[in-house]
Amino acid sequence: MLEIVFYILSAITLGTAFLTVVSKNAIHSAIYLVICFFALAGHYLLFNSQFLAIVHIIVYAGAIMVLLLFTLMLMNLDNDDETKKPLFAKLAAVFSAGILGLVLIAALRKAQPENIEYVNSGVDYQSIKVLGKVLLNEYQVPFEFASILLLVSMIGAVLISKKEEKI
């Protein structure tokens, strides 16, 4: 039963991800990406991690993609407006994305999940309580760094909008 669900979800994920890249219309791309995010959230649910699935939907499908769609709709992109990129730039983009993927996979392979002791001790390690404890005990420094990163980008955005006002 779960295997069938997994295969269906995987098919949707890969299919929509492919269509996101292929489709000509930018808005259609964005909508395919939203469906892809939902399928990914379904994968998280298969792992029984409800929190991650819901937060994934709120942040990616609910906030980021809405803003992206917003911009796309207002810009009203046509195929003619798109600048033709040289082949070299395309190859470089694919190469750098591949390198990034390699680094991520290498990092994840060597990583030691800190919550392994929670898994071994038999508590419901997907529940929000345990997740919060892991985040604020074992991963406190990266957690704070992430919040500083967000704060910096927020201040940057405010600064840019303020500067335009003066001119």
Binding site: F51, I54, I57, A61, G62, V66
Partner: peptide, 9 residues
């Protein structure tokens, strides 16, 4: 969170 998720979609 589920309610907020549905709201955002």
């Amino acid at each position: 969170l589920y309610i907020f998720g549905v709201l955002s979609i």
